[in-house]
């Protein structure tokens, strides 16, 4: 036990006195940034793809778009996100001569990747909305697009909110691979503290606790949001 408290002291020293907490805060910021922006980008892309996939298919254009979307989803769901990060950072961008920081690439890749996952979530959400809702909108002269935006998608989002929350949680956890392209995230920050002190036990323990707290906070947020959205289900 004396051994452990010595380790804690060592961690304390680096974390507080040598400004280790600044690194951790930066890492936390990047982790959250990548997860939040990734989810937002993913939400927009995912909603667009899901809409294309539920479009009536008797015309040519929707069929072509649908093919493109299927390919996109297969590509991003069929490869590990580490591979996507590495390909974008070390292959694609150098090839086209664009310079981006690790964090920027991570933002983009996590957005594109979660777009593929969110599109599947959103598609099942849209399909879970009673088709009568679309018919009700079309029958009063609203267009497919308007009815989708004002009636169907809001109800779909409500249905998939818990699943979307889980997607956010897995994004938070998956960000721990962005160190592959040199981005400083929560894992990288504690790794840095550990390397400086040649002692990893306490840093990784604290890291794990921070991840857990983040996930619990998000779960709580989802629950609160669900409750406020339940309004339209029963008596107000």
């Amino acid at each position: 036990m004396g051994n452990f408290s010595a380790k804690v002291n060592k961690f304390n020293d680096i974390f507080v006195n040598q400004n280790g907490y600044v690194t951790v805060l930066n890492g936390l910021k990047n982790t959250l940034l990548i997860a939040v922006i990734g989810l937002l980008i993913g939400f927009v892309i995912g909603t667009l793809i899901a809409t294309v996939r539920v479009l009536p298919k008797y015309k040519r254009l929707p069929r072509v778009l649908n093919g493109i979307c299927s390919f996109y989803v297969a590509l991003f769901r069929g490869t590990p996100i580490v591979a996507q990060l590495l390909v974008f950072y070390y292959v694609l961008f150098p090839l086209i001569g664009v310079r981006m920081t690790g964090v920027q690439v991570a933002l983009l890749v996590f957005g594109l990747n979660s777009g593929a996952y969110v599109s599947e979530i959103m598609r099942s959400g849209i399909q879970s909305v009673d088709p009568g809702q679309m018919e009700g909108g079309r029958s009063v002269g609203l267009s497919f697009k308007t009815t989708m935006l004002m009636i169907v998608i809001p109800q779909a989002i409500k249905n998939i909110l818990p699943t979307l929350g889980n997607e956010f949680i897995s994004l938070i956890k998956e960000t721990s691979v962005v160190s592959f392209v040199g981005a400083l995230d929560l894992y990288m920050a504690f790794n840095y503290i550990g390397s400086n002190s040649y002692e990893f036990m306490v840093p990784y323990l604290v890291m794990a606790i921070i991840y857990i707290i983040l996930v619990l906070l998000i779960s709580l947020g989802i629950k609160l949001m669900e409750r406020s959205l339940k309004k339209s289900d029963r008596r107000n």
Partner: peptide, 29 residues
Amino acid sequence: NLHRRKMGMVFQHFNLFNNKTVIDNIMLA
């Protein structure tokens, strides 16, 4: 869509917009 504005439809299962209040259901279109 232009012609449907002038051709109302009432369904067996009502198809009211679940995410809108009663008055918004009527005002939306």
